[in-house]
Each structure stands twice: as C-alpha cells, then as structure tokens.
C-alpha cells in the first residue's frame, strides 16, 4: 500500500472540495482498502466521508430512498426496504458476508471494482487497471467472465448484486458535484468497457453519490433475486437474475429483469421483458422469453456454459417471482 493522507470531512461541500484537490472518497472501504493493499489502487489522499449525513433510509411516497452511506446490512434489515422493495433486501443479503455488509456502503457497492483475478495481479496485463497492457483473461482463463458487453479489451463482469436489482427496478441516483446536483437512472452509471475499460462509470470528477431512489409500483412486491453459484454463500455470482413481475388478471402487465455475472456491467434484459408482456406467467412463457437473453452474447473459450445458464437463471427467477403471494 502506498502512503496516503487521510482527511475526514463533515459536509458534502467539504468532501467535494477535498476531492477537487485530488482526494479519493472512502466510505466502508471494503473494496478500496483491499485493492490499495494490492497496490491496484494507489490513492495518495483519502477523503473519509463517513460522517456525512447521507445515511437515511426512508419512504417518500411509494419510493424507497436510500442515502449513499447507508450500510448494506442496515438497508437490508430496514422495515421500509422490506415493505416497499423486498427485492433490494433479498439481493443485499445474498451479497458478501454479514461482516462486510455491516461496513460496505450502498454507494460503494455500486462503485466496487471487478473481481477479475488479473485485475488484482500487478504482474498480469489488464487494460482496466493499466490501459494498454492487454487483457490476460480473453486469451486465458475466463470461465468467470462476461458474455455480454465485452470488448476486445476487457471481459470482466461487474460484481455487484445490488446494482442488478436497482437496474431492474429503474432506480435513480442523485449525485452532488461542485456547486450542483444531478439525478439520473442508475442504469446510466455504468459504462461498457469498449476501448476504455479503465473508465467504469459516468460520474464526473469529484461527484459524490448522495442518494438512491427506488420507485415503487405494482411489480415491487412480486420480485425475487436468484444468485447461482457453486458455493452456497460468500461467492460472487456465476449468473444471477433479478425479476419483478406485475401480473393482473392472469397476464403479465409489467416485467423487470436484470442479470449479473454475465455482463461487463449489470445487464437489463429488455427483450426478455418485452416478450413477457401480455403473456400468462407460466414456465412456457418464461422459457420463450428468456431465450431473448442470449441475443448478442459473445462467449469466450471458458464461459460458453453461461450462455446456457443465463436463460435458465432468468426462468427460475421469474418462477420465483411468480410464486410470491
């Protein structure tokens, strides 16, 4: 770990000013400290934002509003989360471990870096960590890598479970910048690697995630998250799917589906959603719709199985959602 200075800030303005002077925000630090220790991350100045008053979790109208510094465990356990957006609670509990969830913030969860092993090893080429050094995974071991949204520069999956759910639920986020605020869909936070895999998100320099807003709706209660993995817990998704259904009169009126473990960013499955609208929520319809999920996949040498697993995961998540009373 390279040496750094640490500045604790008490207000958003102070934080943004510190970031303007080259500071790097740190909240829970569960990703950042780990990567600093590997010297994958090398910030020289850390800005400790944990004292900022953005830890709230509350209902506003039918929306669930979550401060960026709320901890994963707090959000998962909060009665408003469970009442308004049980999918968020379920997704959070499927991630990491209880200890990590006690520390990791919601904002940090969205900005966590990829788990590609080559990204973490300084002696391996990685365009995401060191642009221009090549991708060690694409021609190497890549069984855990993405099949969607890859480029010839990077195929690392985005590891967040929460982001999958938020994208499925059309959540928005509010960020604070130097002298302004702006809001946009969480979906717009994540970039594709393209030729710039080191650029992972669309935040501008110094911007601070303040709040996540998850709109309610008739789909919100009939929503489930399925995380498929070889180990029952404490493992990142091999493939995951968040599915929310609004069924009325025996017909799917609205469907929200997003997947993890398959894309270089959390992946919304709009074609699958469209194929479900107007159908009876049964396995046949789910299977037919899920076939849309693999359109455009580009499997690598080691991850063809994900092309098979992806639609099955979606089908199962839809079935689980459909079974919610």
């Amino acid at each position: 770990m390279i040496p750094f200075t640490l500045q604790k800030v008490l207000t958003e303005a102070e934080a943004i000013a510190a970031a303007g002077q080259g500071g790097r925000y740190i909240a829970g630090g569960t990703t950042l400290i780990d990567l600093m220790r590997e010297e994958v991350e090398r910030p020289e100045k850390l800005v400790d934002i944990n004292a900022l008053p953005i830890k709230h979790i509350r209902a506003e109208g039918g929306d669930l509003v979550i401060g960026a510094l709320a901890r994963m465990s707090e959000v998962a356990a909060h009665p408003e989360t469970q009442r308004l957006q049980p999918l968020i609670a379920e997704t959070l509990v499927e991630g990491a471990s209880p200890q990590l969830r006690n520390v990791a913030s919601i904002g940090g969860n969205l900005l966590q870096r990829c788990r590609c092993p080559f990204f973490r090893m300084l002696d391996a080429g990685c365009n995401k960590r060191a642009p221009g050094t090549g991708c060690s995974a694409i021609e190497g071991l890549n069984g855990g890598h993405a099949i969607l949204g890859t480029s010839d520069q990077c195929a690392a999956t985005h590891p967040s479970d929460l982001a999958v759910a938020l994208i499925a639920l059309d959540a928005t986020m509010r960020v604070t910048g130097p002298g302004y605020e702006r809001s946009f869909p969480v979906d717009e936070l994540f970039r594709l690697p393209g030729t710039t895999p080191h650029l992972e998100h669309t935040l501008r320099p110094g911007e601070l995630i303040a709040e996540i807003r998850v709109p309610g709706g008739p789909h919100a209660r009939r929503a489930r998250y399925l995380k498929v993995r070889d180990r029952s817990s404490y493992e990142f998704a091999v493939v995951s799917a968040a599915a929310a259904l609004h069924v009325e009169g025996g017909i799917v009126r609205d469907a929200r589906i997003a997947c993890g473990g398959v894309g270089t960013r959390p992946w919304r499955m709009r074609a699958v959603e469209r194929a479900l609208i107007g159908k009876a929520p049964d396995r046949a319809a789910f299977e037919a719709a899920a076939r849309q999920a693999t359109e455009g996949v580009k499997p690598l040498s080691g991850n063809h199985y994900k092309v098979e697993l992806l639609p099955r995961t979606i089908v199962r998540a839809l079935e689980m959602a459909g079974e919610v009373a």
Partner: peptide, 25 residues
C-alpha cells in the same frame, strides 16, 4: 487451483476464488 498455461501462475490464488465449503454448504 487453476494455472495460467502461459506462465504457470495460480490464477485463483485468493480465498474468495479458491472455493472451500462455508457454513451454509
């Protein structure tokens, strides 16, 4: 333990990547 055929590095040399059973298993 998966080895990179190009240089013999154990690619999953990490307790999050070399899976052993957890309590729930």
């Amino acid at each position: 333990t998966a080895l990179d055929p190009r240089d013999g590095r154990p690619v999953n040399a990490h307790m999050g990547d070399y899976l052993v059973p957890v309590n729930l298993d």
